[in-house]
Design a protein around this nucleic acid. Structure first.
Lengths: 359, 359
DNA sequence: ACAGGTAGCTTGTACGTACAAGTTGCCTGT
DNA sequence: ACAGGCAACTTGTACGTACAAGCTACCTGT
């Protein structure tokens, strides 16, 4: 029994009110009628009706019956707002995602209540509590430390019990089984690598972020592409860095490994545009040229991809589009629509000038 | 039986919470304990507890127990929130400003309601109306088209009459006489230009944005610095562009003017880091070198300033700090404090590698 | 030492019954 | 004709039982 029976009864009643266009004051079936209809006990029907009455859908009069409530009035003076919580705000892709969300929300007449967790669980808790206080109608969340156990599941469950829909982006907490919109990073890694292979490259290096799910996924795609083309994955061709590495320091620290990499490889898959630019500069300083000596493919298609004179070939993160889609899905859910719950967005290769055919 | 039993149970529980001074989170008796205590069925206890939970006195956790709810919080429940409205969201310095604002607001227990005008007056109006609906306690605004007459002054005046404090950033509407926090762009322009003069440059070009107060101010500072050093300001050394110019197009369109500029000048003051990078690339493609042939100084000290191998010498926009200061000032004002109303932040020259002494 | 299972607590769902109490309309006695 | 009562409906209160499912602490086997 997946859903409790009283839930089914609730949903049926709401559905009927919506579809039959019942107006406030109209009488609905008696408890016994509903019990017979659904072959459940009167107790169960009472639970369903009781909750609906609490939520404002219905009201009851002792001795007379149960009637459709005046929900419209309540809706119109409620401030329509949506909570949006991300880990960082000024990291280079979040602004675009938020912009996409804002586009849809402002058109639909919703406010956006923004919160930033700094990737810390305590701030996440605070944020969620704020959202509840602010009476948001729905929440969009980029999970904080999605790889670790989450201490705020109780708050999440409270929110879900209140009937406030949540959509996750980038990842989700498995314990909650909430809807999400994610980018297929494995596919992205595959696309980038496969493109280099199709250009004739055999020795393809990789630079990835180690403490980040995206890093792992893109690396996985990289491995799969090589495997599919029966090219061996060499450990010496992979360079790892983490958040703590000041973004250009790791090249200096792992200087020898980096030297080996550019000696033995004709192409490199770079974790993101920022890293790719660092690599471009380092390689150039050695008197080599992009893409003539070494081809590069990176990820995200951020602003950075086109600021240098070497326009980067990069696998696009849908950014703004992702924001739009998650906002649309959420609003759809709030309005009782039945759209897709788990959305995986495809990555797209943007071909520019940083990779060319291998001689 | 005058009062129903479940009413008695309810009253007893409320009484106990009040008298024993139970705090939110404290566990109360289990359903079975209560049933025994009152010699009623568990069903009856559940009804009592259920209603109390609905009213906010209690909350229940499946498998753990029933706990005293945070009713105090709900009572003093003016949702503390601040409206933040900017022209763009993903432009390269706004995320940092918003981050700074969020830092302060979240610490002070405020929500941030975010709105984005896209630099359009109609969206600005919508945003403001939303803020009022959302019952914000204060508003931070980056003015939309600050150089043009504003058609939404009536809404602004309504808000001010309601006693909701407003702080502007970057610029303000003179008609309103509101508090603001701005960067001293004239000083910034002066600093940048004066630095080049001190390096021995005499022919200093400038590229500025024409439909933006910041552009005008920086240009003003540029003029003042030249005047103070008794260097003539030549019209032919100034290149103007506007928002509609796709950011690299203007160089192609005004190609001849740009050619003249780099022929007659040994240094250029660039409106911002983004423009500076375009100039770097264009100049390099002509076989010239930065800073050996031409020195550059730009504005903002954004991420872009250090992505290229030529690290830009740039006048820093305080970004995050500006966000923090405006948020602190606003909260201070809400709490009745009497801080400074018109804050002008100092610009700071960050010396890197894109400008050097004139031979 | 610790991973994993389990016993025993909690609340959640669901069935049943019975009677109380409010509302309505019909029916009956005057 | 009409007042009063009662039958038949409604929801409200209240009892009982059973099992499901979530949480915690303890205990046991490796």
């Amino acid at each position: 029994m997946q859903k409790p029976k009283y839930q089914l009864v609730k949903e049926y009643i709401i559905e009927t009110i919506k579809q039959e266009g019942l107006e406030p004051g109209d009488k609905i079936w008696s408890e016994n009628q509903l019990a017979k209809k659904f072959k459940v006990s009167r107790h169960t029907v009472r639970q369903a009706i009781g909750e609906l009455a609490n939520e404002g859908w219905l009201y009851k009069i002792h001795g007379k019956g149960t009637f459709v409530g005046d929900r419209l009035g309540e809706k119109s003076n409620k401030i329509k707002s949506i909570g949006v919580m991300t880990t960082y705000l000024n990291d280079y892709i979040f602004p675009s995602i938020i912009l996409g969300i804002d586009e849809v929300l402002s058109k639909a007449g919703y406010n956006m209540v923004l919160g930033c967790t700094d990737n810390r669980h305590d701030k996440e808790r605070l944020c969620l509590e704020n959202f509840v206080k602010a009476d948001v109608q729905g929440i969009i969340i980029e999970p904080t430390k999605s790889a670790l156990p989450n201490p705020n599941l109780d708050v999440y469950k409270q929110i879900i019990n209140k009937g406030i829909p949540i959509f996750f982006i980038h990842g989700s907490y498995q314990e909650l089984d909430c809807p999400y919109v994610v980018v297929d990073d494995v596919e992205a890694g595959y696309l980038a690598t496969d493109y280099l292979i199709k250009l004739g490259h055999k020795n393809i290096g990789g630079i990835f972020k180690i403490d980040d799910i995206q890093g792992h996924c893109r690396f996985k795609g990289y491995q799969m592409a090589l495997a599919d083309s029966k090219i061996e994955v060499k450990d010496s061709n992979i360079l790892w860095f983490d958040t703590d590495d000041n973004r250009d320091e790791f090249i200096k620290r792992d200087h020898e490994k980096f030297e080996d990499l550019i000696k033995s490889c004709s192409a490199i898959v770079c974790y993101n545009d920022q890293i790719a630019l660092k690599v471009v500069n380092t390689i150039r300083n050695k008197g080599l040229s992009i893409p003539d000596d070494i081809s590069l493919v990176s990820f995200d298609d951020s602003q950075l991809a086109v600021v240098s004179d070497v326009k980067l070939t990069t696998v696009a993160h849908p950014q703004q589009k992702l924001g739009r889609i998650v906002a649309e899905s959420l609003i759809n859910k709030i309005n009782g629509g039945r759209g897709k719950d788990k959305i995986r967005m495809e990555a797209e290769l943007i071909i520019r000038d940083s990779a060319k055919e291998h001689k």
